[in-house]
């Protein structure tokens, strides 16, 4: 260390380069090890791209003929009769159930998950934070069929009074309208999904919150911030991109969750009147496909279900893209 200039080795922090993160550099030596490892890494990267493309192509390939024969509007119809010479099917009900239940799950899981993560990293005494973190991770390891069983057999009864209350007090609002269905409502599925994705949100948020540089936290504290103000000015802004990624990962899981939803959901009979109520039953993309897996006997039928799967694929794709954009836009402010 030079005591003359006041400059220490700590000053020599490398600054991030502005070039493309994918761009190679001049460090490659052309030796066998370098080429071998470089080749393997490139291959792995290429494989992922190829897989996504192939899955997309497969879905399109199978779905297009079925869509071409469809006599109902695919995007706006509720019908689903895929057998016979005049197949009529549409996804609006599946889309609504999937999106609505997942959004409910997000609305519940993200605030709670962020709260749990903040508790573990900022508030809990040290002897408690480790076991609490492990416990949350354990929750992530519970198989989804267990959630399904527990949801139907035990949790169902606990949620019913809440549903009744909301329907009686807020029934004038279309989303909470009375339906008479008591069982696997969208609302209930949303709650079970929230519990399933809670550990994802918590675990990832905890990780980023724990990485908040001490310098940022002390900067806030030295200004006379209370603990909550310190969290608001340094921990939350630092963790924001991580929380967004965590939420999107969780949303992806919620959108695609199959077993638990299939188990719980109250399938609507074809003639059932439609409503926007969250207390309606309905099926998600995944549960409809799973419920009818036995029917995949003709390319026509299979194609219809694959078309539904394609929409789910695009949906998760869009969700991820939005998350990317949100994170990118904040990038200038996160160094």
């Amino acid at each position: 260390m030079s005591t003359i200039t006041g400059v220490t080795a700590a000053d020599e922090t490398p600054t991030p380069t502005s070039g493309s993160p994918l761009g190679g550099d001049a460090a490659g030596t052309g030796r066998l090890g370098d080429r071998l490892f470089g080749g393997l890494a490139t291959g792995a990267g290429g494989l992922v791209v190829a897989l996504v493309t192939l899955i997309g192509v497969f879905l399109l390939w199978q779905a297009i003929p079925a869509l071409a024969h469809n006599e109902a509007s695919f995007l706006t119809s509720r019908e689903w009769s895929v057998g016979g010479d005049h197949p009529r099917f549409g996804i609006v009900e599946l889309l609504w159930t999937t999106v609505a239940s997942s959004l409910i799950a997000m609305a519940l899981a993200v605030p709670v998950g962020v709260g749990v993560a903040l508790f573990i990293t900022q508030y809990a005494p040290r002897w408690l934070s480790r076991p609490a973190a492990s416990l949350v991770d354990l929750l992530a390891a519970v198989p989804s069929i267990v959630y399904g069983l527990w949801g139907v057999l035990t949790f169902r009864a606990a949620v019913r009074p809440v549903e009744d209350f909301l329907q009686s007090k807020l029934g004038w609002f279309p989303l909470f309208a009375k339906t008479g269905i008591s069982g696997g409502t969208i609302f209930f599925i949303g709650i079970v999904l929230a519990i399933m994705v809670l550990p994802i949100v918590t675990a990832l948020s905890r990780e980023v919150f724990a990485q908040t540089p001490v310098a940022h936290k002390e900067g806030a504290l030295a200004l006379g911030a209370t603990r909550w103000e310190m969290i608001r000015t340094s921990v939350l802004p630092f963790g924001r991109p991580g929380v967004i990624s965590a939420s999107m990962l969780a949303l992806g899981r919620a959108l695609g969750e199959t077993i638990a939803v299939t188990f719980i959901v109250s399938t609507l009979s074809p003639g059932n009147p439609w409503s926007w109520s969250l207390f309606n039953g309905g099926e998600t993309f995944a549960s409809r496909i799973a419920n009818n897996a036995a029917e995949f006997d003709s390319p026509q039928k299979t194609g219809a279900f694959i078309a539904a799967g394609l929409v789910l694929f695009v949906l998760t794709f869009v969700v991820n893209a939005i998350a990317r954009i949100v994170i990118e836009r904040r990038k200038a402010f996160t160094e």
């Binding site: 002390e218 000015t233 340094s234």
Partner: peptide
């Protein structure tokens, strides 16, 4: 907290709040 509002501190490494603008940093 009141003590730290009366006695300010500057650290070894500059630690402006990274998500805040210059203005917001000073106004924090």
């Amino acid at each position: 907290v009141a003590v730290r509002r009366t006695i300010g501190m500057v650290f070894q490494r500059p630690n402006p709040f990274p998500t805040m603008s210059i203005y917001d940093n000073v106004a924090a």
